[in-house]
Design a protein around this nucleic acid. Sequence first.
DNA 1: GTGCAAGGCCGCCAAA
DNA 2: AGTTTGGCGGCCTTGC
Length: 298
Amino acid sequence: MTTPRVLPIHGFPGTEEAIPFTITTFDDLGSPTQDALPHRHEFYAIQYVTGGKGNHIIDFSPYALSPDTLYFISPGQVHFGQFTRPLEGYAIVFLEEFLLYPGSFSSSIYEMSFFHTVGQKPVLRLNRPDAAGIKSHISAMAREYSHTGQERLPLLRAYLYILMVNIQRLYAAAYPVQNSVKETSFVRKFKHLVSTHCTQQTPLETYAARLNVSTGHLSNAIKELTGQSPGQIIRREIALEAKRLLAHTDLTAAEVGYRLNFEDPSYFGRFFKKATGLSPSTFRKQVRIQYHDIVSTV
DNA sequence: GTGCAAGGCCGCCAAA
DNA sequence: AGTTTGGCGGCCTTGC
């Protein structure tokens, strides 16, 4: 198997209608080969798995697939599946703007702690009664999706919102944190901004301006809530992007560095080693052995 | 919010 | 050839 030269980025799947929202079963999704290759999305995805066997690898962490489990993929995350039995269940995908349509709810995607997770897994295993509730809600969503008429759009938005608030409650119970939703949503918003801007050299003031706070407040708040300085978080995100490119492309280490705005390959090497404990080329070898193992042991 | 000093980051160079 | 390590210094970030 040859490594693709570039890492695929999937835009919103083409639909006959204009709304950035779809719900499908994995059967209807067609070629599972697409999901078996490392790729990333511009959209959010909630996967409700009811059957199938294998592993789902999200940004280098493998998660065994099991029934009655939800998987949350945020924009930019590199993921792929290794299936020995095809997936069963639903995939719900949407863009953030779907929640922000005129007349929609004022809530923000960043209030959902299962997207842009801060330390927690992007996975939620449901117990039997919770799974039944989520499943019937998603089934109702899928039915509404196949309808036509004016009420469809507001209903789908409402269904999605209620689904996410319900998931949020279960997720918060599974992964308790001490900070409030408002505080952690600020962190998630910052981290998402960082993940989309870290490949350019973006000064701290730009992030602060986007978040409508001063640089001083940004530094203090992020340090307070995460224990890390903004700079540390930015560098961690850059290191993650470097890992993605090393693992999934044929770019040389120096080229990966250039892409991430490192003028000097030698400094990039030192940066990467400090962040991950491994040199770029050792990481590349190691992760490919790991993935090969996952492929062959499943 | 402002100022300042210490430390860490980042780029240049050499060498293995 | 490309990668990795190390020294050196300007300058940005951090934390008081």
